[in-house]
Structure formats: structure tokens, C-alpha cells
């Protein structure tokens, strides 16, 4: 997993609530057996008319040339529904390194963190302030200090991140390396609970 320390970037706003992982990556794209290439199908059915890349839906933020950046900003309960990690892979592959919302579904949050995509939970009012910014506005996210700032106004909020996950993100460590290092303790646990 790649390390993530700071992001300063413009953002893509999708001010919808309850965005489920079926929208982020529809089931028909789950037939792949690798983690690569999901970005082109991110929000596929919100992005294209009749599944045709020749017919982009112009009112959808990803198709709006005014918006770009490494940060996706969305309404509350982002990533609900299916546990498909393909949703996090699609977001990362498209080029987003952070998702900002006032509320994340639990499984999505874990999946994002396990792929080095930072879920940033902000208050509902801060989220609305971000949505009110113009398309040129930038956000600064700092993992070390756990803060997110609207650069134009200087308003900022801190977000939650446990120190274990913070260390993982800052250094690009993943949970599997950690668990592999604990196999002796796990074997001991198995013997004791048998």
C-alpha cells in the first residue's frame, strides 16, 4: 500500500446521500479477478446514458470539466450496501485519494483504509460549507494532524483516525503485514482456547 501524508487538491462534489456501492461500481463489473482497471467504470450508470461512453450524462460531476482533483466529496452514508471492495478500488483507480462525507458506512470505510484511500468524516455543517465552495476551491487534508481545511476561507475541522491506522497510512503499511507478524501469538491463542 502506498503511503499517504498530505493532500492539497480541488475536489469533485456529489451532494447525494446514501450513495451505495452498487452505484459506485455496478455488479456487472465484479467479474474481474484483479484489482486493476475499475476506475473507468466508477459510477458507471450515473456517468453514461445506456452504458455508452459515447453518451456521457453531462449533469454528472465526473463528466463536468469544471471539476477535478484527488478528493471526492459526497453526502452522508457514503458507501452503504454491498461489501464489495471493488468500490474502493474504483475510487482509487480513478484518481481519488480521499473521500469526504459526514458519515461513512462501516465496511466501505475499512475497505478504503485498506487501500490507502482516506475516508474523512466531517460535520454536516462543514460538509455543506465545502459544497458551497466554487469549483476552483481547494481542500487541504493532513493525516498527521488529522485536519481538513477549506483553503480559501481557512476554516478547518479535525477528523477521527486511530493511531494504528494513522501509522499505517503515513508509512504505507498494511494490516496483512501486521497480522503476519502476529502468527505466533495467534497460534498460542488457538491452543489456549481449544
Amino acid at each position: 500500500m502506498k503511503a499517504l501524508q498530505k493532500i492539497q487538491s480541488r475536489f469533485v462534489p456529489i451532494p447525494m446521500e446514501n450513495i451505495d456501492t452498487d452505484q459506485i461500481i455496478p455488479a456487472r463489473f465484479l467479474k474481474a479477478t484483479t484489482r486493476d482497471g475499475f476506475g473507468k467504470n466508477l459510477f458507471r450508470d450515473w456517468r453514461y446514458e445506456n452504458d455508452s461512453e459515447a453518451n456521457p450524462k453531462t449533469d454528472f460531476a465526473l463528466n463536468n470539466p469544471l471539476y477535478s482533483g484527488e478528493i471526492l466529496v459526497a453526502g452522508k452514508n457514503f458507501g452503504c450496501g454491498s461489501s464489495r471492495e471493488h468500490a474502493a478500488w474504483a475510487i482509487l483507480d480513478y484518481g481519488f485519494n480521499a473521500v469526504v462525507s459526514s458519515f461513512f458506512a462501516d465496511i466501505f470505510k475499512n475497505n478504503a483504509l485498506n487501500n490507502g484511500v482516506l475516508p474523512v468524516t466531517v460535520s454536516e455543517s462543514f460538509l455543506q460549507k465545502i459544497f458551497e465552495q466554487g469549483n476552483e476551491a481547494t481542500l487541504s487534508i493532513d493525516v498527521e494532524s488529522q485536519t481538513i481545511r477549506i483553503d480559501a476561507t481557512g476554516e478547518q475541522e479535525s477528523f477521527e483516525l486511530n493511531s494504528y491506522k494513522k501509522t499505517c497510512l503515513l508509512n504505507g503499511y498494511d494490516d496483512i503485514d501486521f497480522l503476519l507478524s502476529r502468527r505466533e501469538a495467534i497460534t498460542k491463542f488457538e491452543k489456549e482456547s481449544a
Binding site: S83, N110, N111, D175, I176, L179
Partner: peptide
């Protein structure tokens, strides 16, 4: 339910890392 990275964790260690809900 878990994501695929967590499936890999279980393969590797029969454990997952979970925050107590």
C-alpha cells in the same frame, strides 16, 4: 461482511483487525 483485503487477512492469519462496534 468484509472486503477482499480482509479476506486476505483471514487467509494469512485466520484473523481480522476490527474496531469494537
Amino acid at each position: 461482511g468484509i472486503g477482499t483485503s480482509e479476506v486476505e487477512m483471514v487467509f494469512a492469519s485466520q484473523c481480522v483487525l476490527q474496531t469494537k462496534p
